[in-house]
């Protein structure tokens, strides 16, 4: 009887592990395929019976892709917009998240509801008003907002602040308030205590939140497709241009995709502990 149980446990364990292997293949195959394709020649990519294994090491894709479109501009635009957005959203979000974590102020429930509410707004509902608002500001105030870095940064910062607040709040909750009290007894103002004590302690959480803000800004296409044409075209819009009606340069497109993906994955693997904690802290805490 005992033997039989052990056998069944082993069988179950084997089953669980094989299911996990299948899931891993499902999860990783597209990323593998992207990298493989980036090293393929045009004729390899367009074959009707493609090979699952790497067939060639055609690194020419990585050299040619820069000439096809102003890819370098797309990257620069995306980096300027996303990095500035990240810095601003983290600063503004940290302040609000800290207040949210430490103080019981009237209207806190309403504020919390508003944060959650922003997650339900269909982008298309505010896209046109925003467009009109941008045009109105340009004609009446004289500040151009369409097709500018600062216009996109302003929009993206606002979009990402609610999520940043939610995530950062979870990190601030884990920092004991006694540390700030001690700093204030030593003569720090509230704001100094926040900057000098709380922010450094929450640094891993802030970094993790920053990564999510960066990813969100980097991936945005809806508003970018309407509000950012020509001069500030970000990578997320520019990369789709490799697919043309006449001929799609899959190899070069995948090469550009690989270049955009690998640094992010590397960053994630480096910072994964705070990122995973940050993801779950807001909702698993009981």
């Amino acid at each position: 009887m005992k033997m039989k149980d052990e056998h069944r446990d082993m069988l179950f364990d084997l089953l669980a592990k094989s299911v996990l292997v299948c899931i891993l293949i499902f999860a990783l195959f597209p990323i593998y395929w992207m990298v493989i394709t980036s090293f393929r020649t045009w004729s390899d990519v367009t074959q009707t019976d493609p090979s699952l294994l790497p067939t060639s090491f055609y690194y020419q894709n990585y050299l040619d892709m820069w000439d096809r479109f102003p890819l370098i501009d797309y990257f620069v635009n995306s980096l300027v917009i996303s990095l500035t957005t990240t810095a601003l959203a983290l600063f503004i979000g940290s302040l609000a998240a800290y207040a949210f974590s430490r103080y019981d102020f009237p209207g806190k429930q309403l504020f919390g509801g508003a944060i959650l509410g922003t997650q339900m707004i269909p982008g298309v509902l505010i896209l046109l008003p925003m467009y009109l608002l941008f045009v109105w500001v340009q004609t009446n105030v004289g500040i151009p907002l369409r097709n500018t870095y600062h216009g996109m940064i302003f929009v993206y910062t606002t979009f990402t602040v609610p999520f940043a607040i939610w995530m950062l709040r979870g990190f601030f909750d884990t920092i004991p308030a006694a540390l700030e009290d001690a700093a204030r007894i030593d003569g720090c103002t509230r704001f100094q205590a926040l900057i000098r004590i709380v922010f450094p302690l929450a640094a891993p959480g802030i970094a993790a939140t920053g990564m999510f803000v960066f990813i969100a800004a980097f991936n945005e296409v809806l508003f970018a497709s309407i509000l950012a044409s020509s001069d500030v075209t970000p990578f997320a819009i520019g990369i789709t241009r490799f697919e043309a009606r006449s001929q799609t340069f899959w190899g070069q497109m995948m090469a550009a995709s690989t270049v955009a993906t690998i640094p992010l994955l590397a960053l994630f693997i480096l910072f994964q502990r705070p990122i995973v904690e940050g993801l779950t802290s807001g909702s698993v805490k009981q």
Partner: peptide, 12 residues
């Protein structure tokens, strides 16, 4: 998959 840029994986 969740960390990779969405547009990139969608094109893939």
């Amino acid at each position: 998959p969740w960390i990779s840029p969405i547009v990139v994986v969608l094109l893939t």
